[in-house]
């Protein structure tokens, strides 16, 4: 890439800003900072960063509100950093349009991985017709899933669930979102379906379904697909 990726960090804690500056700069990103919501919004408007890291606990405005206001016109990835690790708060942030979240204290390696995923998802606007992970390949045009060249028999629901997870690789998908997308609006609180089908799917595609590498559980929030 010719131009370095620009990341805006909105956080009122000077220690976190310093840490992120060093971690991100040394990984080739260009960082700039806002210490409150007002500054964050105006910097976003003026500089159009490629990604925003947003702390939910800002001094001047509720982070969820800031997120909503940003999402009215800012289309690029937003990653949430928060000390509030309640499931409600996280699900709300994802519903408000955050691409991903990390709770403090977080590991820098984890953050870097999330940033890479978020950036990759925006770069590839068109989904590849065939996606491969592990020894599995999915052909979206013919709706055929193969494992080591042999056709893997999936029910329609299993296929729909797998394909939506794979198409959003690296991204947390909430229970409600998955239920609505795969089963329909009226199923949005019927989590039993999700539990059963995730378990079934894991048995089919994971090497060891008890230690899944691909379909990762995000406790109380949803699931995330990793290509391992």
């Amino acid at each position: 890439m010719s131009n370095p990726v620009e990341i805006l960090i909105v956080d009122d804690e000077v220690q976190i800003r310093k840490l992120l500056e060093i971690a991100l700069d040394s990984n080739g990103y260009k960082t700039f900072f806002a210490v409150n919501a007002k500054e964050g919004l105006s910097l976003t408007a003026n500089h159009q960063p490629d990604l925003i890291i947003l702390d939910l606990g800002l001094p001047d405005e509720d982070g969820q509100q800031v997120l909503k206001r940003l999402r009215e016109w800012y289309k690029k990835p937003i990653i949430i950093l928060t000390v509030k690790n309640t499931e409600e708060e996280i699900v709300k942030a994802l519903d408000n349009g955050a691409n991903d979240y990390l709770t403090k204290p977080f590991r820098t390696q984890e953050l870097l991985a999330r940033i890479r995923t978020a950036l990759r998802n925006t770069n590839e606007n068109a989904i590849e017709p065939i996606i491969e992970f592990g020894d599995i390949s999915i052909d979206f045009t013919s709706r055929i899933v193969k494992q080591k060249e042999e056709i893997l028999k999936l029910t329609t629901t299993e296929y729909n669930l797998l394909s939506i997870l794979v198409k959003n690789e690296g991204r947390v998908l909430t229970h409600q979102y998955l239920l609505k997308e795969v089963w329909g609006n009226s199923y949005s609180d019927q989590t039993q379906y999700l539990r059963v089908f995730v378990a079934q799917l894991r048995k089919k595609i994971e090497e060891d379904s008890n230690h899944p590498k691909f379909i990762i559980t995000e406790s109380g929030v949803g699931y995330r697909f990793n290509t391992g």
């Binding site: 989590t191 039993q192 539990r195 059963v196 995730v198 378990a199 008890n210 559980t217």
Partner: peptide, 8 residues
């Protein structure tokens, strides 16, 4: 309260 897969 929500459905839990104890194994998971």
């Amino acid at each position: 309260m929500d459905w839990c897969d104890i194994n998971e």
